Simulated assay, not measured.
Amino acid sequence: MTDENPVLATRDGPVMRITLNRPHRRNAMSEALVARLDELLAELRADPTIRVVVLSGAGGHFCAGLDLTEVGAPEDPAVKLARQQARNRATGQRFAAISELPQVVIAAIQGSAFAGGLGLVTAADIALASADARFSAPEVRRGLVPAQILPWLVRRMGRSEATRICLQGHVLDAAEAARTGLVHQILPDVEALEAELARVIADILEGAPGALAETKALLAALGPVATEAYAEAGAQAFARRSADPEAKEGIASFKERRKPSWAPGA
C-alpha cells in the first residue's frame, strides 16, 4: 500500500473533516502524514469561514502514534539524535497548533488512539468515541518516553490519571477513558458516533464564530499547557531515549510481537 494521500481533507460548508489516511498502518504518523497535517493546520488558522474541524482516522482506527519504522531505521547516531529532537519539538508544536485553532476541534475516535494519537485526542476541544475505541500511552514499553503528550494528558485527565496511564502503559477501554475524563462521551457504535457528531456540530454552529474563537482564546489565557522549557526538555529526553539500546530492543520486540528483554517472561 502507498501513502499517496496520507491525510484527506473534505469540506461541508463551515465544517472541515480531516481524516488520517494510512489504514494499513492504523494511521501511524509518518513524516509525510504530519507534514500534510501541519499544512492543513496553517491553512485553517487563516480561514475564518471554517467553524468546526473534525479529526478522525480511516479504516476503523484513529491513530496508532508515531510510525516506529521511521524511528527505528538505521542512521548515524548524531544525525539520528538531531532528527529525533526536531521531530519531538514539532510534535509538541503540532498539539499546540490544534488547540490554538480559532475553530472548534472535535476528535471522533474509533479503534486505536495510542501514543501521539492520544496527544491528538487531548489537543482537541471535544472528544467523542465509539465503544470499540482503545487508548494507551505505551512509550515506556518501547523504551521511549511520552514526552510531548504528557502535559496534554495532564490537562485533560489530571496529573494522577496521567501518571498512571504513562507509567503503567496499559490499554484503556472506552468506558475507562470516559471515567478518567480522557474523552467526553462514548457512543455504542460508529453510526451512533456519527449521529452524535452531527448533533454536537449543530450545537456549535448555533454559537457566534467570533464568540467561540474568543472563548477559546480566554481558555488559553488561563495558562500554557507546558512551558517552553518543558517542551525542550521533552524533545531532548525523547531523542536520548530513541538513541538508547532500550529503544532499539523495545521497537524490535514490538515489530516481532514479543516481549522486550526487560519484561518478565521474555
Score class of each variant (00 low, 15 high):
M1Q: 09
D3S: 13
D3Q: 14
N5V: 12
N5H: 12
A9S: 15
T10E: 15
R11Y: 00
R11H: 02
D12K: 10
P14A: 15
V15R: 02
M16I: 12
M16R: 15
M16F: 08
M16S: 09
I18V: 15
R22L: 15
R25Q: 13
M29H: 05
S30T: 15
A32G: 11
A32M: 09
V34R: 15
D38I: 07
E39Y: 01
E39I: 08
A42S: 14
A42M: 10
R45F: 09
R45S: 13
P48D: 09
T49N: 11
V52P: 04
V52L: 07
V54A: 05
L55S: 10
S56V: 04
G57E: 04
G59P: 10
H61I: 11
F62Y: 12
F62L: 06
G65M: 09
G65Q: 04
L66H: 02
T69F: 03
E70V: 03
E70Q: 13
A73F: 06
A73T: 07
P74S: 09
E75M: 14
A78C: 00
V79M: 06
A82T: 12
R83E: 10
Q85C: 02
Q85L: 12
Q85G: 01
R87P: 00
N88P: 00
T91R: 01
G92K: 05
G92H: 08
Q93N: 07
Q93K: 13
F95T: 02
A96I: 04
S99N: 13
Q103S: 07
V104T: 15
V105G: 12
I106Q: 05
Q110E: 15
Q110P: 01
S112N: 10
A113G: 13
A115W: 03
G117Q: 05
G117K: 09
G119A: 05
L120I: 11
L120R: 00
V121N: 06
T122P: 00
A123V: 06
A127M: 05
A129M: 06
S130W: 02
S130F: 03
S130H: 11
D132I: 03
R134V: 10
F135A: 08
S136T: 10
A137R: 07
E139C: 07
R142H: 13
G143I: 06
L144N: 04
L144T: 03
P146F: 08
P146K: 08
P146S: 10
A147V: 03
L150C: 00
L150A: 14
M157I: 02
R159C: 00
T163R: 13
R164N: 13
L167G: 04
H170W: 03
A174R: 08
A175S: 14
A177Q: 02
A177R: 06
V183G: 04
H184M: 06
Q185C: 10
Q185A: 15
P188G: 01
D189H: 07
V200G: 01
G207C: 14
G207W: 14
L212G: 05
L212W: 08
K216D: 02
L219P: 00
L219C: 08
G223N: 06
A226N: 08
T227N: 01
A231P: 00
A233I: 03
G234N: 01
Q236G: 00
A237S: 11
R241I: 00
R241N: 04
D244H: 15
P245V: 11
P245G: 05
A247R: 03
A247P: 05
E256K: 14
R257E: 14
R257I: 07
A263Y: 13
G265S: 06
